[in-house]
């Protein structure tokens, strides 16, 4: 999936737009998703998805898969938010919905828990959509250039940059090693798969150490002095149509949020 995300971020229809616009817009939507009410969050979710799938042309299947994977983590944490265990007396409250009774204790859902879960779910979806909009439309190197502009320490950027290059090299190496193991009858049965995967992990570790050493030599030969100078952030004109949509859309969301806060909206 990492390779697919990377490929999409490099080849999407929003690539001509300045990365600063997409990063700034994504951050604005993320902030809005964090601070607003569920109704506004759902609108943010829809708006970000329209940009990502509609305008950028990111495959809907990939988008749903990524969202689904994140929802699984949310689902795993859901019981902690909505399920409570209490004495039989506690279940009498009107806002409690008993699931079952065991050994004199009741396991029940609370309406406040469900409310919290709904709040968290909408916030998660809106924040995810905002961050996916950035991740899927801006390639990592341009994201790093944006972070550099925001004065993120260079050591952090160097590490991300090296990890970004290494991830694909090691992934390819792991895939090659696995193919070689399979060609020699490996990965046969559960026990064989476990054994071969463990062996692969060991080889990958030694290989990554060797790669590190080689990369250090390569960098030194090219004048590395403890810091990787990153390219500057690509700037450019923002098409009026996008400018208008962002300003108009943010104004509508703000108005809606204010209306909800002032309880004008039911």
């Amino acid at each position: 999936m990492i390779r697919q995300i990377d490929a999409v971020s490099h080849h999407n229809r929003l690539r001509p737009l300045p990365p600063a616009l997409l990063c700034g817009f994504g951050a604005l939507l993320g902030l809005g998703a964090y601070l607003s009410h569920p109704a506004v969050r759902l609108l943010i979710l829809i708006w970000a998805a329209v940009w990502t799938i509609g305008y950028a042309g990111v495959p809907a299947r990939l988008y749903m898969l990524m969202t689904g994977a994140a929802c699984l983590f949310f689902a795993a944490g859901l019981p902690a938010i909505i399920v409570e265990i209490g004495s039989a007396a506690a279940e009498e409250k009107a806002e409690h919905f008993r699931l079952f009774h065991i050994y004199g204790r009741s396991i029940y859902l609370t309406s406040s828990g469900i409310q919290t879960a709904w709040e968290a779910f909408t916030r998660m979806l809106a924040c995810l959509a905002s961050s996916y909009m950035v991740i899927l439309t801006v390639p990592v190197p341009e994201l790093l250039a944006a972070l550099k502009k925001l004065r993120v320490p260079s050591v952090v950027l160097d590490l991300i940059m090296i990890m970004y290059r290494f991830i694909f090299i090691l992934w390819l190496e792991a895939a090659d090693m696995k193919t070689a193991q399979q060609a020699r009858g490996g990965h046969n049965g559960l026990k064989g798969r476990l054994n071969d995967t463990a062996m692969l992990a060991v080889h990958l570790f030694t290989s990554s150490m060797r790669r590190y050493h080689m990369l250090h030599q390569g960098l030194t030969a090219r004048g590395y002095d403890g810091h990787i100078p990153l390219p500057s952030l690509r700037m450019g004109a923002i098409p009026g149509r996008y400018k208008l949509e962002i300003i108009g859309g943010v104004a509508v969301l703000l108005l809606l949020e204010i209306t909800i806060r002032l309880e004008v909206w039911p």
């Binding site: 390639p139 940059m161 290059r165 790669r211 080689m214 990369l215 390569g218 960098l219 030969a221 990787i228």
Partner: peptide
């Protein structure tokens, strides 16, 4: 270098 991965660092 013989292996280009050894010296290509940026994206």
């Amino acid at each position: 270098f013989q292996d280009p991965e050894q010296q290509l660092i940026l994206a």
